[in-house]
Design a protein around this nucleic acid. Sequence first.
RNA 1: GUCAGAGUAGCUCAGUUGGUUAGAGCAUCGGACUCAUAAGCCGAGGGUCGGGAGUUCAAGUCUCCCCUCUGACACCA
Length: 532
Amino acid sequence: MNNSDHNHKFSLTSPLYYVNGIPHIGSAYTTIVADTVARFHRLQGKSVLFITGTDEHGQKIQRTAIEENLDPQIFCDRIVDSYKSLWSKLDIKYDRFSRTTAPGHQQIVNEFFERVWSKEDIYLDRQQGWYCVSCEEFKEERELIENHHCSIHINKQAEWRDEENYFFRLSKYQQHLEELYESQPDFIQPASRRNEILNFVAQGLKDFSISRVNLDWGFPVPVDDKHTIYVWFDALLGYVTALLEPDQEPTLDNALSQWWPINLHLIGKDILRFHAVYWPAMLASAGLPMPKKVFGHGFLTKDGLKMGKTLGNTIDPFDLVDRYGADAVRYYFVKEIELGKDGDFNETRFINVLNNDLADVLGNSLNRTLGMLKKYCQSTIPQLTSADYSSDHPLKSIGMDLGDRVVQAYENLQVSQACEAVLILVRAVNKYIDESAPWKLFKQEQQAEVEQILYAVLESVRLSAYLLSPVIPTTSSKIYQQLGFDWDFNHQEEVQADKDFQIHSEWGKLSTNKTLGKASPVFSKLELSPED
RNA sequence: GUCAGAGUAGCUCAGUUGGUUAGAGCAUCGGACUCAUAAGCCGAGGGUCGGGAGUUCAAGUCUCCCCUCUGACACCA
């Protein structure tokens, strides 16, 4: 792959979500941000592969399925349907939905296992310790409370277990990992998370077990079918399996030929270690190139409190999108929450932000201007260009390098700042209209001035809609359509066919002489609605 | 306990290498206008920048101490 080719490709993943229940708001948050990033890269004309999916094996799944009197695969299929349905509601445009139960995955896992096995990085050893069946894990003695009860499942006593497991030689890769973090300083982001991992690794790495006995729902260890491969060697490799074309032979070489290495793993901070330590070590063992970046975002709180079943204050993502729509939910999560930090969801704030930013500021600035265009210009966009405005024009001066700033923000995954940068232009639009008062100029028959004002405003709104389209594709599409473009940002293949990021991301590059249709609100104001 | 990060207007946050009356958005209140989704525009109130001490001509910004919160400290997808 040559360099220019590489710059035109971008692969990214959300986690492959564990299917022990229907999707929760945290999964929706991650996936929305990942989708926004994917859309922005597509907008720039790059080839993008956005992978999401599900991790479906393990004892918890098996047990839950049995409780519901279902075959595990049937159970997983149902949960997967609910994920796909939520992604559809939220306008998530993934390229691959990777399931660890998908055909071909086992071959990939086996082949990968064999590679690591042949490096002698997998060995059989005895695992002794206190095992909490509910947690499905061994506990350190100090983690347990009185009488060896689990601190999470306080009414359950941990069992002493002495069983054989296969282990991955993580300890061997400590130096390798430290060199990786050194040579790829932004491999782990944000910086605070990177420090945590650096600390963790510096303390020394222990090998971890990669198999379980007494587990049916999963793949047998290739060299020993009494053992079942446990989560890491199964789930993480789902990212690799996803890279296969639908009709390709499931081999590692095939999977890795097109899209590897992954440019970005976007994940929650809870699973950072597995992606930032285990995963690169596994890949190193198998002799594969490292992913470019792992970004661990923060968690959501509701009204300042942790969400949880015990508090009963979880947010149902289906309910949220049903009540307020995809663009609203997407915008709030991308713009109002700093990626990497914990963020709060407050419904009143949600309503306020959406109504202000999208309805009052963005939507209304278009609406009021189209009204004037109709009265003053017979709905025809004046034929002007950027050259007709001086560089200190209140809107041109902001719009000129806005595209560059937004690109820069996206490159750094500063999605909130990307929105904020656009908002500066949109807010300036309303101020500009009021200060220049085209309705007065029209009465004074200063037609040229009126036209110059209206063009500047429409061009600013157009640019804003374009740059925000990865976040609010439906609203941006409505704006573009009212401005006379036959575009739908939810069908990016059409948009990309035009290949004009260079043109559309700049202010005043667009020469228009179109007659526009009827204006109607592009974003209806939200009202606080009761849940359920 | 050890390590890391954070504590700035009611809320969410900006505040570069220390330098004029500490900023933005939202929320609240007042005003003028009318092209518009009663939106927008103008203006106002509101902060001892967690507390204390120190360095300096000058500190939200540097140093030390203390308080509070969050996270990591191994198998939580």
